[in-house]
């Protein structure tokens, strides 16, 4: 334990004093402020002279600001935080010859990797928590609405999901830092996988869905085919952690959304009734909707770290 704690403390101090963390944090803080500020302004305008809808506070996070909402920004940019914190975790130590020095101290070898992962997770948590708090405070003064208990719970769950999502990328980049001796290779591999899983999987899902159940724009597609097309697309998309996370976090942050599935086959009557009789889901119901997503997200994070752990324990350390 003493070894784990020593590594953890050193890594945490390293993260917070490194330039790359400061730059990343400044960037994220800046974008978050601008996004939530613009969102706040829109909200304020939109709320004038209207009865206050429920969950105004959460709208700070899911209303598109300048370009995107806070939640979308997190889904897109979160992986980069994880990658930046982890891509040189092990191979840098190997390259500068400190890994053998550390492992020849009276500690268990797993203290090194556990300490590094834990320090990364704590850094991510502190970063996200402070941003959510600052935006909340910002929103309080700007919009002048106090968050209710349920909104705080939702934000809390959102925070937990985000921490796991970013930790998945941290674990992945640590895995690459173990597998690849070169720091540049592991950084590139992490970024490549990020781009693939975040963008190409959804693209590929559309392609596959259209191949399996082609949509016919001219003559109109039968409902069965349309349903099949969408199902295939959504199933394949779930391989992307970004889709998993976006689905989970939007449901949690936006109580008006009731399902992660996109609504197809909506006739005019359904559309009217959906917009007229819109009622928010209760917190517990929202949780039930995203429960599989959250479980999957936690599972891939743990699996990813478990693989890194195994590979690191089985490797021979000479330098």
């Amino acid at each position: 334990m003493q070894g784990l704690y020593a590594v953890f403390r050193k890594e945490l101090a390293d993260h917070f004093s490194s330039y790359r963390f400061v730059i990343l944090f400044a960037l994220i803080a800046m974008v978050s402020f601008i996004t939530s500020y613009v969102a706040g302004l829109h909200l304020k305008e939109g709320l004038e002279g209207v009865a206050k809808p429920k969950f105004v506070f959460l709208m700070l996070f899911n209303t598109p600001g300048a370009l995107f909402s806070m939640v979308q920004f997190g889904a897109f940019f979160g992986p980069l935080i994880g990658i930046v914190l982890g891509f040189d975790a092990i191979n840098k130590e190997r390259a500068q010859g400190t890994l053998i020095k550390i492992t020849s101290q009276p500690i268990y070898r797993d203290a090194v990797i556990n300490g590094k992962f834990l320090a990364g997770v704590v850094t991510i948590s502190i970063m996200l928590l402070s941003i959510v708090l600052v935006i909340s405070g910002f929103g309080l003064t700007l919009v002048g609405v106090v968050p209710g208990v349920e909104e705080i719970w939702r934000l809390f769950i959102y925070l937990i999901i985000s921490i796991f999502y970013i930790s998945f990328w941290l674990g992945l980049s640590i895995l690459f830092s173990i597998l690849f001796k070169s720091i540049a290779t592991s950084a590139l591999a992490s970024v490549a996988l990020w781009i693939f899983l975040s963008f190409f999987v959804t693209l590929g899902a559309t392609v596959v869905a259209n191949a399996v159940a082609p949509l016919n724009a001219k003559e109109g597609t039968s409902p069965e085919i349309l349903l099949k097309n969408t199902t295939v697309k959504e199933r394949i998309s779930l391989f992307s952690p970004m889709v998993l996370y976006t689905d989970a976090s939007t449901i949690i942050i936006n109580p008006m959304r009731k399902t992660t599935q996109s609504l197809i086959l909506m006739g005019p009557m359904e559309r009217i009734s959906a917009s007229r009789f819109e009622n928010p889901l209760s917190f517990a119901q929202s949780l039930i909707v995203v429960y599989p997503h959250v479980t999957a997200l936690i599972a891939i994070t743990l699996i990813c770290f478990a693989i890194s752990y195994l590979v690191f324990m089985l490797q021979e350390i000479r330098t």
């Binding site: 004093s17 010859g97 101290q105």
Partner: peptide, 24 residues
């Protein structure tokens, strides 16, 4: 070890403190 490595961003005292911490 041969070509013993160090954390370049630490000073001598900090390097020793880390080793001491690892040794409990």
């Amino acid at each position: 070890p041969e070509n013993v490595g160090f954390y370049p961003e630490l000073d001598a005292v900090q390097s020793l403190e880390y080793i001491a911490a690892l040794n409990g």
